[in-house]
Nucleic acid binder design. Sequence first.
DNA 1: TAGACGTGGAC
DNA 2: TGTCCAAGTCT
Length: 325
Amino acid sequence: MPAPTALPDPATLSQLHERIGAWFRAHARDLPWRAPERTPWEVMVSEFMLQQTPVNRVLPVWREWLRRWPTPAALAAESPGEAVRAWGRLGYPRRALRLHAAAAAIVAEHDGEVPADRETLLGLPGIGAYTAAAISVFAFGHRETVVDTNIRRVQARLISGRALPGRGMTAAEMRLAEALLPRDREDSVRWNIAVMELGALVCTARSPRCEECPVLADCAWVAAGRPEPEVAPKGQAWHGTDRQARGALMAVLRAASAPVPRALLLDPRLPEQAHGSAAEADDVVRAVRALRRLEAPPEQLRRCLEGLLTDGLAAEPTPETVALP
DNA sequence: TAGACGTGGAC
DNA sequence: TGTCCAAGTCT
């Protein structure tokens, strides 16, 4: 059972707003998707890419993506496979597929303009509670409660006195975020991004930099003597998993511009065939060797390939070959 | 609601 | 080295 959460009184809350706001003005990173002239589409692309992926890895892919596809219509005009290829090594390539599908829906149903309200955004592929709120706030300046993993962690420590939030978001956390949100619209936008930034830079999951925290004196977790987390981390297995095998299969498809023989994917011990340019052939050979090194059971490779086809991450131009969709 | 879903950097 | 973690979404 979560510890009871005492809401700060109005004076304290106002002080929290002030201190975290001042900290943000002094320490915020200069991230391109925060520039005031950014379009809603540019913000939306950043939010998709930032789902479970660190800022530093997103930056170059975001720039190249928007150079190629500066509008939803530009992306929708491409094949989904090109989106998956441009996604590169960001991970969770289904996000590329969903971003492409969302662009198509925006063109088909919203005159090519990113919707401004949370409810409409929620109807788009790949947009859940967090991303809908984030786009509404960061692209359109609306007053909405945004609750991401950073904000949950800051709230858990600062207000609830716990080391980490639980696995799933609770209604209580949502209510707490609403209660903390400044009334003024512009202040609320600033608050959301500032708390996220505080969580990302100072109130981090592993080794929080409490000495740099602007609200250290108000922190319920510190006041409680920094108790240990209540829930043990889940621990993601990796070696030998389907996720690893799917990733290796996708790497081969991304590297190849021509369809790849199905037999090569299912039995990567086969000799690689020539693919396109010499440079590309090198990339394909490298990817196939990485797949081979997994020494995944043939049964697993078959299952994973079928999964990629089912998910739409791969297609079969012919019965004997596989390619990006 | 718990589990699946990529990838690479930090400790 | 292995574990943990990252602006989540979907089923």
